[in-house]
């Protein structure tokens, strides 16, 4: 198969047919990568919903050079040969991204100081770059009471941006989904029908794929800010999953176990609830060493020194 040539923000890259603009941008890397709040490469059919990754297609393809009439979702639009895409170089795309960020924050409680997700929250990152300085809403925010869906998972619907990732995780890696989106429009919510518990071996991955603080780990609740914890790569022999995880340590205390997330916040391999919730002793694990964390992340604060290149290593 011949490779397709695509130009994103004046940078040319060659990709295989069937690649989306988003993934082509990820091959280039750096600032030209559009933010993704709902797209998750490991989840089939994800993306297209949050609209934060909208980009301008200034030239559709070499064969048909007309520009696309509207901004397109880069996570769901396939690259054509000779396509010219503008992301950060398009004022139109930047303006719409600012608007989308505002939409996503209209009903968000902005309770980062008491949210466990703070520091690894994609909405936080997004608002930092694209958020307005002041709020234009005076309306009351939509509020829900936080509920436990299953004994290990806390659902705080106030923080949810309805990305559908947790629904897709349940659909695609567990045997039976018992939660979903109820209602529609601004009154839609993630919930279980008639307070049914989410209880299966892989339910904890809903927490990992949640881009915001809507689904958090009950066993980690209020224990520490993530940037005070030290992430360590570790593994164990597990009959249900790969057993490859990240341990979040404070001294010798193991605060939390998560999947291994890449720089886009996506886990490489989903892990089972045994590994995540039940193995909370350091001795349960074989520790491989400190995890490499992107420098832009707040998690790298205090614990890391800058080394050449993009990423930094933890000071031992």
């Amino acid at each position: 198969m011949p490779l397709l040539k695509v130009t994103i923000d004046n940078i040319e890259v060659e990709v295989e047919a069937g690649t989306t603009i988003m993934n082509a941008a990820r091959i280039i890397g750096g600032k030209v990568v559009p933010p993704a709040m709902c797209y998750y490469s490991k989840l089939e059919g994800s993306g297209g919903k949050c609209r934060t990754c909208l980009v301008k297609v200034a030239q559709g393809s070499a064969r048909d050079p007309r520009p696309m009439p509207k901004l397109v979702a880069s996570c769901r639009t396939l690259v054509q040969d000779g396509m010219v895409v503008q992301n950060i170089t398009s004022p139109e795309a930047m303006e719409s991204r600012q608007a989308i960020t505002e939409f996503l924050l209209i009903n968000h409680p902005l309770d980062c100081p008491v949210c466990d997700q703070a520091g690894e929250c994609h909405l936080q990152d997004l608002s930092y770059v694209h958020g307005l300085q002041e709020t234009r809403t005076v309306e009351e925010r939509r509020t829900f009471k936080p509920i436990d869906i299953g004994d290990k998972i806390k659902l705080n619907m106030n923080r949810c941006i309805l990305c559908y990732r947790c629904v897709m995780v349940a659909d695609q890696i567990t045997e039976k989904r018992v939660h979903g989106v109820l209602g529609r429009g601004d009154h839609s919510e993630i919930s279980t029908l008639i307070v049914k518990a989410v209880d299966n071996d892989f339910s904890g991955n809903m927490i990992d794929v949640c881009p915001v603080g809507a689904l958090t780990d009950n066993t980690f609740r209020f224990k520490s800010r993530v940037w005070f914890a030290k992430p360590m790569d570790a593994h164990r022999k597990c009959s249900k999953c790969s057993g490859k995880v990240v341990l979040w340590m404070k001294g010798d205390e193991l605060l939390r176990v998560t999947g291994r997330k890449d720089k886009y916040g996506e886990v490489g391999e989903f892990i089972c609830n045994d590994c995540r919730f039940e193995q909370k002793e350091k001795n349960d694990w074989i520790i491989e060493g400190p995890r490499t964390i992107e420098r832009h992340s707040v998690i790298s604060q205090n614990h890391y020194e800058i080394s050449p290149g993009e990423s930094v290593r933890m000071i031992k």
Binding site: K49, C50, A99, I100, L104, L162, G185, H187
Partner: peptide, 11 residues
Amino acid sequence: ESCGQCSPCRE
């Protein structure tokens, strides 16, 4: 009547 799937329409 908004389905609530995408953020600009929902919000």
